[in-house]
């Protein structure tokens, strides 16, 4: 089971790399915002898998709840900002 979880974590990291390509490459700012959002969702899942891997889910799950809330705050702030300024 542990080896399986490790494989899951490695593949999640590779997927984060794919999103990171979109963040770095994206033609417009909105592509980058979407990639950021995807990265944070992956990070939440990765944290919980990590918690299972270490058998300390109770500690890791609190961070993932915090991630989910903070991601909303950041993304909403950026989206509001872009709505007011227009995209460069």
């Amino acid at each position: 089971m542990n080896i399986f979880l490790f494989c899951v974590m490695v593949s999640l990291t590779i997927l984060i790399g794919a999103y990171l390509y979109r963040v770095l490459q994206g033609p417009t700012i909105f592509d980058r915002l979407l990639g950021h959002n995807g990265i944070s969702t992956k990070a939440i899942i990765l944290l919980i898998v990590m918690g299972i891997y270490f058998d300390r889910v109770d500690m890791f799950i609190d961070i993932s709840i915090g991630y989910a809330l903070l991601n909303l705050v950041g993304a909403l702030a950026i989206a509001k900002y872009l709505e007011q300024k227009g995209h460069p």
């Binding site: 417009t28 909105f30 915002l33 979407l34 959002n37 909303l72 993304a75 989206a79 709505e83 227009g86």
Partner: peptide, 14 residues
Amino acid sequence: IAHATVRAALRSGL
């Protein structure tokens, strides 16, 4: 979040 992103993209004329 997805709705906010898409709305920002739409309103900024993409």
